[in-house]
Design a protein around this nucleic acid. Sequence first.
DNA 1: ATCGATGCAAAAGTTTTGCATATAC
DNA 2: GTATATGCAAAACTTTTGCATCGAT
Lengths: 146, 146
Amino acid sequence: MSYDELLDNFKDILKNSGLKQTKQREYILEALYENHHHLTPEEIYRLIQDRYPKIKIGIATVYRTLSLLEDANLVSSLSVADQGKRYELLSHEHHDHLVCTQCDKIMEFHDELIERQQEIIAKQFNFKMTNHTMQIIGVCQECQKK
Amino acid sequence: MSYDELLDNFKDILKNSGLKQTKQREYILEALYENHHHLTPEEIYRLIQDRYPKIKIGIATVYRTLSLLEDANLVSSLSVADQGKRYELLSHEHHDHLVCTQCDKIMEFHDELIERQQEIIAKQFNFKMTNHTMQIIGVCQECQKK
DNA sequence: ATCGATGCAAAAGTTTTGCATATAC
DNA sequence: GTATATGCAAAACTTTTGCATCGAT
């Protein structure tokens, strides 16, 4: 999905819920779009401060907007290893994560077989799946050499 | 694995690392064993206080012991939906989770196809997998009716 | 003009750390 | 006896909330 489509999508959601469009909300979406993945609220906050020094933004707004986006199913949160949640857009192609416990690096992969199997499992439980996450935890190739 | 085997296992790990066996550490392991899954450090702390009113235990010890157990790969942590991590023993048979976003209920499932596929993926990335977690997020059967 | 959104600061909640004391070895 | 573990309290982080003001509609 292009950024413009995504933004239109977000604007529609806001309008339909009687919420307002603001620069802050737009910049948060933009930060998530550009830095593809795994941002903490703190990181998003600083990215916006750095890029738009003129605009005022508070960390509370970042948290509030992320909750909004999560409720609207535009972002998902993930928490592994370190403390604090990290957020990423759902509109990027779905993928899962390999997390290295030594260097905290996060790698991505996509596997159709697993995707399909998840759908089958959700169906078995009569569960209405809105999202799913998977993490393979371990030691990456580089850290194994150390 | 029986509790006794698990405890012996833990004692060996402590001994081999030059660490000491304490009642507190044992009770934390016991709490995780008995209440099969998904405990927060706070819950573990209170369980032990309730069950062993005579013994002193501090929340810091719970955190310290959980880190120890996680390093030793005896427990894994999981964080979804609510804030804060939850811990569970790895020695219980491995399973993955269905998390309901409406009632926060966590259900479990086990799927061999997914397990095998995760191993294949780890191999492709030359990744030494020590653990893996998967969560299917959505709305459970009961909450769909509401 | 209205009502929701924002920034700020305070509060609440979670996790870690320093230190004196207690306890396992 | 020595070294590690513990409880406690303080500190560090993370997230949420109250409130006066601002800004989108």
